[in-house]
């Protein structure tokens, strides 16, 4: 039960990050290898912003929650316009260039922020006991066992992620922006003919994708610390999620994130974390080889 709550926190952040990656892939057909670094950048900026704001920790945190994703999104949009656009989103060159971007971002952070891991304080962190049901003499009984507790902040992370994902879904399905983005996804050239500013849509999408990763990172820094190498795992996990969920499919991505985030805790009960990672990476490779449409998808990627 507790493991699954921890798992839900992982899953929530993972879902945000992976949906960012999936959006970018789905709409722009770009595999963004630097995605993990946008995540890391979000965490590091969160530390900066929150330590810059004085006063109550909550003020700093809320500021970080708004500013960090915006900044990261802006950096990403800039990278899109100055680099990706100029190579015409050629798939292979895009990968090479985003690898370059990965190292540049990571190493610039190393030069400025340094090699230390730093914590960000959660805005609130009340311990909450959780109820437990059990069959007693009088039928189903409710307990409040001492060991079963979580913090209010973790519940907040889960709720916040759910709200943001819902918002992304609404954006894609029910707004003009979403319509325009989906039209671009179907056929970039056609969209251009119909007067859709494809270039701006791409820049926005790339920024939004990176912003979502950064948001996930801001949410997680009060639990994990910000460190310049923290982008590797989210990148790998997001890849796994996006591939298993079916490339570019948002619902598939969210389902896969839940599955992987939740099972992460459970798997590591049976296997060592390294072995779990080995199995997960092999699984992804084999899914790509034998079921490129993902485990849940039906359309061909």
């Amino acid at each position: 039960m507790l493991a699954s709550l921890e798992g839900a926190v992982t899953a929530a952040v993972l879902a945000l990050t992976a949906v960012g990656l999936s959006l970018v892939f789905g709409i722009m057909r770009v595999v963004n290898v630097a995605h993990g670094e946008f995540f890391m950048l979000g965490a590091v900026l969160a530390w900066w912003v929150s330590s810059w704001f004085g006063g109550h920790v909550a003020i700093g945190f809320v500021a970080a929650l708004v500013i960090a994703p915006m900044l990261v999104g802006a950096v990403a949009a800039l990278a899109d316009v100055t680099i990706l656009k100029r190579i015409d989103y050629d798939p292979e060159r895009t990968i090479v260039v985003t690898i370059g971007l990965l190292y540049v971002i990571q190493q610039v952070v190393l030069m400025t922020y340094g090699p230390e891991a730093r914590p960000v304080e959660p805005p609130f962190n009340t311990r909450l006991a959780l109820p437990w049901f059990e069959w007693g003499e009088n039928g189903l009984q409710l307990y409040w066992p001492w060991g079963l507790s979580t913090t209010s902040y973790k519940l907040f992370v889960i709720a916040a992620a759910a709200v943001v994902l819902e918002a992304v879904w609404l954006l894609m399905r029910h707004t003009k922006m979403g319509l325009v983005m989906r039209a671009t996804q179907l056929d970039g050239e056609m969209a251009q003919v119909f007067g859709i500013p494809v270039e701006r849509v791409y820049a926005f999408t790339f920024g939004l994708g990176a912003g979502l990763a950064a948001l996930g990172a801001v949410l997680i820094v009060p639990i994990q610390q910000a460190h310049y190498l923290m982008g590797g795992d989210p990148l790998l996990l997001s890849f796994i999620v996006v591939i298993i969920g079916g490339l570019g499919s948002l619902p598939g991505t969210v389902v896969a994130a839940l599955l992987i985030g939740m099972s992460d805790g459970i798997i590591s009960v049976f296997f060592s974390p390294t072995l779990a990672k080995i199995l997960a990476t092999l699984l992804v490779a084999l899914v790509l080889v034998f079921r490129p449409q993902g485990l849940f998808g039906t359309r061909t990627a």
Partner: peptide, 17 residues
């Protein structure tokens, strides 16, 4: 600098462009 991999990244980008 210990951040020499930044050079690798920058060269990769420049070459691609």
């Amino acid at each position: 600098t210990s951040a020499y991999m930044a050079v690798v990244g920058a060269v990769l980008i420049a070459l691609t462009l």
